[in-house]
Every structure is written in C-alpha cells, then in structure tokens.
C-alpha cells in the first residue's frame, strides 16, 4: 500500500464532511475490494475514511410496507441470514450468501459492493432486477440510473450511499455461474417479477457491467414461464471474452442461467 492518512468516523455526516475536505479520499466500508486493490498498489487514496465505527448507525434491515430497506453498512452475512429478507425476497438472501466466502461475507457490505459496481459483483444484478432505489446523503437514485459502466456509478465525489430500498417482488431468483478461479460471477442472472413487470439483470458478462436483458424480459412479461424463453438467445455482442469464457459461451450461459432462474422463481 501507499501511504494515506486514516480517519475514523462514527457518523455519515462526519464522513461526508471529511470527504469534502479530502479530494482523493476513499470511504472504507467492508474493504473487500478496496484493500486488496490498495495492497496491489493499484489504488492510492490520499485518505481513508473508515465507516466501520459508524456501522451500527448505517446498518440494519427492516421491512417498510412492500419494501425491504437495507442500510449501506449491512454485511453480506447479515443479509443472507436475515429472516426478514429470507421471507420477503429469498432470492436476495440467496445472492448475499453466494458472495465471496464466509469470511468475506462477514466483512463485505451492500453499500460498498453497490458503490464499487464491479462488473462481476453479484449485488448490482439484484439492485437492477428488483428495481431498487439507492439512497445517498444527497438524494435517491433509481437503479436504472445508478449503474454507469465498469466501476462507474451515478455517485458524485464525496457522495455516500446510506441505504438501499428493494421493492418486494412476487417472484424472483438469482442463478450464478461462478468464475472457476475467482468465484466472482462469470454470468449471474437475476430475474424478478413484480406486478406485470419482469426484469432480468445480468452481471459478470457484460463488458460495460451489469445490464438488463430486454429480450428475455419481453418474453417473460408475456408469460413468466421457462417455456417463454424457447428460442430466446442472448447476443454475444458486448460481452466479455477472457480465458475462462469467451463471449459466445457467456451468451449461452445467460440463456441457461436465465431459464434456471425462472424455474427456481417458479418453485421448480
């Protein structure tokens, strides 16, 4: 790591104040991506604003009406094991339980994952497919407006996610095909149906990060059944190619994972 100055804060307000004064500062939440990146000397923030002392204020899970509200500093482990989430959106609990490994889930946070928008991270697919709303210290941002490409989001410098609100779907499921080596999503497909709307979000595959698979959405909106997907194929255009999967294989897997997700959502 390169040198940085370290700031411990016990509230979001203090964090934001500090961020305003330190241009190259980074918020430290779970640190599961930031710290390895810094260790490799691929990131050199001038200051670290450690949100962990504020975790109690920024974490928590509750149901408000037909939505689940998850505080930004809520750890993956707590989402995966939350009775509230398991009852209301089991697909979201499943997804949280598939991130990293148990030790990573004990530290990593939903806010950190969503703010980082790693193209192979799991959470962005849930945020997008469930049409969640991202709340920051300044405003609320609809999922469709939040993700802007590889590691890019609508967040402005110094803006901090405080919570994410997930409307409860009638049906949802997440299927993940992990990269054999890193176990990040090589292809992850989150399908969700709420009212008449079906949303299908794909992570891990797109060269521009998480995206909605509109062809699949259209087919499933007509009828939310795996048979609706017969003949529906993802295009390889714009998908990643690497040693683990070329674009054609990723496109194929989007179809397979989507079908399996629909079956799972339908209880099959």
């Amino acid at each position: 790591m390169y040198q940085f100055t370290y700031h411990r804060v016990d509230s979001a307000r203090k964090a934001i104040n500090l961020a305003e004064k330190n241009e190259d500062a980074k918020f430290l939440a779970g640190g599961m991506t930031l710290l390895p990146t810094m260790k490799q000397r691929l990131a050199s923030p001038s200051a670290i604003i450690d949100l962990n002392p504020a975790a109690d204020k920024l974490a928590g899970i509750e149901q408000r009406g037909r939505a689940i509200v998850i505080g930004a500093m809520t750890r993956h482990y707590d989402v995966a094991n939350s009775k509230i989430v398991q009852d209301a959106i089991p697909a979201l609990a499943d997804l949280a339980g598939m991130i990293g490994d148990p030790a990573v889930r004990h530290r990593g946070t939903i806010g950190g994952s969503v703010a980082n928008n790693d193209p192979a991270a799991d959470y962005p697919s849930a945020v997008l497919a469930l049409n969640a709303t991202v709340f920051t210290n300044k405003r609320k941002i609809a999922a469709d407006d939040f993700f802007k490409g590889l590691f890019e989001t609508a967040l402005e410098p110094g803006e901090l996610i405080t919570k994410i609100v997930f409307p409860i779907p009638s049906k949802a499921a997440y299927m993940k095909f992990p990269n054999p080596a890193s176990r990040y999503a090589m292809v992850g497909v989150f399908v969700a149906r709420r009212g008449k709307e079906v949303r299908v979000a794909v992570t891990g595959a797109g060269s521009n990060g998480v995206f909605r698979a509109s062809k699949f959405e259209a087919a499933l909106t007509a009828k939310f059944h795996v048979k609706s997907l017969e003949g529906v194929n993802a295009s390889a255009d714009g998908l990643n190619s690497d040693i683990h999967a070329d674009a054609a294989y990723r496109a194929h897997l989007i179809g397979v994972m989507c079908r399996r997700a629909v079956n799972k959502a339908n209880g099959k």
Partner: peptide, 14 residues
C-alpha cells in the same frame, strides 16, 4: 466471526 486478517486494517479494529 471468522475474517481474513489480510484484508482488514488494524486501525479498523479499535
């Protein structure tokens, strides 16, 4: 809780 001690700052664990 189990965590990876290579991926947390000592200062975080005050």
């Amino acid at each position: 809780k189990a965590i990876k001690s290579c991926t947390v700052l000592a200062l975080t664990l005050e």
